[in-house]
Design a protein around this nucleic acid. Structure first.
Lengths: 267, 267
DNA sequence: GACGGTGTGTGCGGCAGCGCACCGCAAGAC
DNA sequence: GTCTTGCGGTGCGCTGCCGCACACACCGTC
């Protein structure tokens, strides 16, 4: 039903991994935005920004993964967004706000392009097409947040876990990665035991395998069937929102063309 | 601990109700955006946009209230955002996307300024200060969405109901309004019986009174104490985000000054 | 090759919310 | 007045997750 998005499909070794937003920019915009910088390395557990603190950079992941985590009262956290090479971290800066309401937690080590806040600001002011791309992504993130609220409310842990694994595999560009039940419980906002229960069920159904933090997806199609519809919905909404409705808006159509060529290159 | 925000405080009869975003605009921006239009009337139950459909207008409520509702699978809906005269409906258009992922449901009858999509687009392109205001509000909404996700996950119905009543009273500019348990259950994403239980508890604590859909807040301070911290947090985040950090950004500081004068006028 | 830390599995009582069902009462329609 | 419809209140058994506690298995280290 939902078309695969090559850009975020698993295991494409050998292919250069590109960032979906940067790839949509014009060469000129991209050059001005990135300058002479090189991608930086992000390590698991790094905190890019604490909630309420000032954002000094935005990040465009390549093979790294960044979780957006909200915290509340004394409760443990809850992941409300996941950013890989399809997006960016630091959306508030793209909206002219330099404080981050969410914790930015590196959940998968890897590389990312990093851009200074002042340079982003300068380029946003200069380029309407840059604004168009980044603001569309802000909308994608809003969709993700509202979906997350409903999913967290209505769906049981097992289906949410399945979705989380799929989303992470997509962004890690691999079907196996390292993550403990403990950490997962933090992301899903449940007890560690709850994760163990759900993971055991998925393992018994021969959809995944794991051993002391090393998780492998062994039946991707089965896992997709076991996950909630939110997985497919999120992918679809990304496509629709980033590519535009295709009518009435020349810039959006051009964006779509660029996006297709990016996805083809990545595949 | 949290300063009161006069603009959204209850019952200010006789004072002209203004929209917080429009009030922050320069007179020139405001004139160009609104043209010669007059506010339109929104009636309870009106659907401004179905999810996935095209947005043709944005709305700046005066005394009307608009709920942002997400739906998922076969489940009933879940309110993920609430818009009164502090904000606007149609944020996607301000981000260059003309499809709405959420249902816009009029939850409180009243007036609102309405602006055509094309006119908004034209003015956004022209005015950086207009962009600044609307994009800051987009960030406010993102904060609200992520908070909503965590609140829905961790807080019990009774405290969520208390928060909902307070937020609605603020936006209705009155301490009593009409809303049935049935409708509330739809907003909170629980059974109607769950609302009845919670409402009964609040009534027994002498915080509210109700009768066949007419709800009155009779002990506002008590209700605030009974609500989750999300109520205070949401107010605070609005202030911080709309007024800017106050440093490093001239436009934001000017915004803050305008905002104060708006709040004083409204009070 | 004993040890300690980390990651995983299980058991138990408790509770919030669910689905279902039924009842009573108020307000408006005729 | 009678009838219908809408709104609110209660009961019951069930489930998914909670907090707490304990057991075990693997792995690197000394």
């Amino acid at each position: 039903m939902i078309k695969k998005i090559p850009a975020v499909s698993p295991i494409r070794r050998g292919a250069p991994i590109r960032n979906g937003l940067l790839a949509r920019l014009s060469p000129d915009d991209r050059r001005r935005l990135l300058g002479d910088d090189q991608p930086v390395e992000l390590a698991f557990g790094d905190v890019l920004c604490e909630p309420g603190k000032r954002l000094h950079h935005v990040y465009f992941p390549l093979d790294s993964i960044i979780s957006l985590v909200t915290s509340i009262d004394g409760h443990a956290g809850l992941e409300v967004g996941l950013v890989g090479n399809e997006g960016m971290y630091g959306v508030p800066l793209a909206l002219g706000v330099d404080l981050s309401p969410l914790k930015g937690l590196v959940q998968g080590s890897g590389m990312a392009w990093r851009v200074d806040a002042w340079r982003l600001k300068r380029e946003l002011h200069r380029s309407a097409s840059l604004r168009n791309i980044l603001h569309r992504y802000a909308e994608v993130l809003m969709i993700q947040l509202s979906m997350e609220a409903a999913c967290t409310r209505f769906h049981v842990v097992e289906t949410r876990l399945a979705r989380w694994l799929l989303m992470t595999a997509d962004r890690a560009h691999a079907d196996d990665f390292h993550i403990t039940h403990e950490f997962l419980s933090y992301m899903l906002g449940v007890r560690r035991v709850g994760v163990t229960r759900a993971a055991t069920a998925l393992r018994r159904r021969k959809l995944i395998r794991y051993h002391r933090g090393n998780i492998s997806i062994i039946d991707r199609a089965g896992l997709e069937a076991a996950s909630c519809t939110c997985y497919a919905t999120a992918k679809q909404e990304y496509q629709i929102t980033m590519n535009g409705s295709g009518r009435r808006n020349g810039a959006a159509s051009r964006g779509a063309v660029r996006a297709q060529s990016f996805e083809k290159r990545a595949a």
